[in-house]
Design a protein around this nucleic acid. Structure first.
Length: 116
DNA sequence: ATTCTGACAGCAA
DNA sequence: TTTGCTGCCAGAA
């Protein structure tokens, strides 16, 4: 196959959902990590966009386990209540202070490493 | 077809 | 260290 880029955008959203659903309980990952795993690399924004419309997917998407690389809960506003995401994460053992995950590195789950 | 936007990430000041 | 600008890809208007 040529080094050129194939059309991976067809199931891009599905892939995002798939990977997101594979995130273990009590673990978290970042948009960039998922984007990197999908091969798009620098299209981390698309991961967020995909999760933004994750309501189209009938399955439950643990989008609360996906944060930005700073461990900041940037998408908390999309969970109805701003405290929903924080509560969900805290319920899974994630320590959050000022919308930021304290034990981010400890609970980080990299699909590239874990899923390979 | 063109333009704008977005739940990001990287790099420069 | 924090702040701000730029690049990135896909979808909506």
């Amino acid at each position: 196959m040529p080094p050129g880029n194939q059309k991976v955008n067809i199931d891009f959203f599905s892939k995002v959902y798939e990977v997101t659903k594979l995130i273990p309980y009590g673990r978290i990952t970042s948009y960039g990590a998922i984007a990197l795993f999908l091969g798009t690399g620098r299209s981390a924004r698309m991961v967020g966009w995909a999760l933004n419309v994750c309501h189209n997917n009938p399955d439950f998407i643990p989008a609360h386990r996906v944060v930005n690389r700073n461990g900041l809960l940037t998408g908390k506003h999309h969970f109805g209540n701003s405290s929903t995401m924080k509560q969900l994460l805290e319920n899974e053992g994630i320590i959050i202070e000022d919308d930021r995950i304290i034990n981010f590195r400890e609970k980080f789950w990299d699909p590239l490493t874990e899923l390979k």
